[in-house]
């Protein structure tokens, strides 16, 4: 039984994609940069290009970090659901296989936060 209940009970998922008015959720975290206490939760259209996601809402938050401007994007690694993947920046989130409530993580080798402290 998927829940301990006195009668039959079927949970109704509260956060399915149709609740977001044509948009979807994406979570973005930047490993070793805990000046940002948690990955951010974004609500964006599935047709948004990956490039625009990063240059737009992601940069808007992360640009506050002194290392954001130092990122060598040719060496940066993205993880999708914990697995390395190579996004095509010109393609949409949907075309990059980034569905609703997908978790993206950015790794920037050599940049490990302020003073290497993970901050």
């Amino acid at each position: 039984m998927a829940v301990i209940a006195i009668g039959d009970f079927v949970g109704v998922a509260k956060d399915t994609v149709e609740h977001f008015h044509g948009n979807q959720l994406v979570y973005v975290g930047w490993d070793k940069h805990l000046m940002f206490y948690a990955p951010m939760c974004l609500c964006v259209p599935p047709a948004m290009r990956f490039r625009d996601l990063v240059a737009g809402p992601v940069a808007e938050v992360y640009a506050a970090h002194p290392q954001w401007a130092q990122i060598d994007w040719s060496r940066a690694v993205w993880l999708r659901s914990g697995e390395p993947f190579t996004p095509d920046p010109e393609r949409s989130l949907a075309e990059n296989g980034i569905g609703h409530k997908e978790s993206l993580r950015l790794r920037t080798p050599g940049l490990d936060g302020i003073g290497g402290s993970g901050t």
């Binding site: 979570y27 975290g29 490993d31 070793k32 805990l34 940002f36 206490y37 948690a38 990955p39 951010m40 939760c41 974004l42 938050v61 506050a64 914990g82 978790s103 993580r105 490990d112 936060g113 402290s117 993970g118």
Partner: peptide, 29 residues
């Protein structure tokens, strides 16, 4: 000020701010 909304844990509902037991620089996912 960080003005973004945080990703939350589905169960405890705390933002995903906890790190791996053996690596305090790495958020646990």
């Amino acid at each position: 000020y960080n003005t973004s909304l945080p990703q939350l844990c589905q169960v405890c509902q705390i933002p995903m701010l906890f790190t791996e037991g053996d690596d305090p620089t790495q958020i646990a996912y």
